[in-house]
């Protein structure tokens, strides 16, 4: 398997597109997000995804731009940041969503309430490709 850190942006986009299916295979995470309904913008800095979450499930994931689509908050990171974040053992400072914002590799914008009220849900949701990569390589 090609290390994600060497992968082109397309690999990051492909990994994001697989998150809804990974979530469906992680029922405990769906339960964690059971009170969450939110339309948000997540993904790589230049081409993020509009993500619709209802009762903890992703009901729609469409890559931007989408004409006049609203979102409450966005969390966007550089492709390099996603690639590092998804390593089985990420490097120090690349291992957490807020470590990435602190180092300037990610940007958190908008109405942050749904993100902060469900912070562990979003950390775990956006780490699903890491677990998937570990499963594939083991």
């Amino acid at each position: 398997m090609t290390p994600l850190s060497d992968a082109p942006d397309a690999a990051v986009i492909k990994a994001f597109a697989e998150i809804p299916a990974l979530l469906e295979r992680t029922p405990a995470l769906v339960v964690r997000g059971r009170f969450l309904d939110c339309d948000c913008l997540l993904g790589p800095m230049g081409r993020p995804f509009h993500v619709s979450i209802r009762a903890g499930r992703i009901t729609d994931l469409t890559q931007a731009p989408v004409l006049m689509r609203s979102w409450r908050f966005s969390y966007r990171a550089t492709p390099a940041a996603w690639a590092e974040y998804w390593q089985a053992l990420p490097k120090p400072g690349w291992h957490d969503l807020l470590a990435l914002t602190k180092r300037g590799e990610a940007v958190l914008e908008g109405d942050l309430h749904p993100f902060m009220a469900h912070l562990q849900y979003f950390k775990d949701l956006l780490a699903l490709p890491r677990l998937d990569a570990a499963t594939v390589s083991s």
Binding site: P90, P92, L97, L98, A99, L112, H113, M116, A117, K123
Partner: peptide, 24 residues
């Protein structure tokens, strides 16, 4: 964010510091 009625205090405190634990 750590102490407001519309965010669970225990959950937000733990979620924030969870990233400070080494993955190993």
């Amino acid at each position: 964010w750590l102490n407001r009625p519309d965010v669970h205090g225990g959950e937000i405190c733990a979620a924030l510091v969870s990233g400070l634990i080494a993955p190993q």
